[in-house]
Amino acid sequence: MLEIKNLHASVDGKDILKGINLTVKPGQVHAIMGPNGAGKSTLSNVLAGRDGYEITQGSVVFKDEDLLDLEAEERARRGVFLAFQYPVEIHGVSNIYLLKAAVNAVREHQGLDELDAMDFLTLVREKLQLVKMNEEFLYRGVNEGFSGGEKKRNEILQMALLEPALAILDETDSGLDIDALKTVSEGVNALRSQDRSIVMITHYQRLLDYIVPDFVHVLSDGQIVKSGDKELAKELESKGYSWVTDAPKAGQTA
């Protein structure tokens, strides 16, 4: 599904990612944890194709294609989805308009007919249930005046509609109270499947109690310094990041 090899990326000449290696197979859920400034958000932005990052070395292959060669919208149409840490507000554009445009952009790429307004409404109503959102959300401006929890649920709604092959969840738990966290997690869990991969980026172990990952990686100073299963996250929680970040880097031990 996704194979990242020796990925180096910089912003304004400053190296942020310094050789990331990561393989994600279909159906797997990977959690990437790490302290602030480790490069977590940079990794998600680079994978999604945001401008402003220079890839200095390495490669990213997604479903046998060179991902780095594609524009952000081309990646999205091929099934790369990023749930934003801070979803933006777009004044005057109704949520349903954006959702429909997104779904139809993907459908067009897949050679399917556009969904008309009625078919789309049927589809979106079904998906709203998943994240326990009211239909009224569809007609408000995109994320306009949404609470933190509503914004994150709206992201998962989009994921449910777009059915991506690879979903990157960037700090999806940040700013959520415990009830909202449960709702969002249940939504994500319902979307886990044999042929969908999920990469969760998070600062805290808390999220992993709800969305249980197959693998946990610790990102520090632009590299993955430790990998393990869900037990690693628990260990991190009790010992703190310094436990791994101060230790010699993986693969560099004598």
Binding site: R50, A76, R77, V93, H109
Partner: peptide, 28 residues
Amino acid sequence: SEDQLFYCKQRGMDTEDAVSMIVNGFCK
């Protein structure tokens, strides 16, 4: 903002459609 544009592109829209949508929202 670039954030708005990137958000739309990440949902599969090309730049022109995204700009047009954002501007139309502004003028609604």
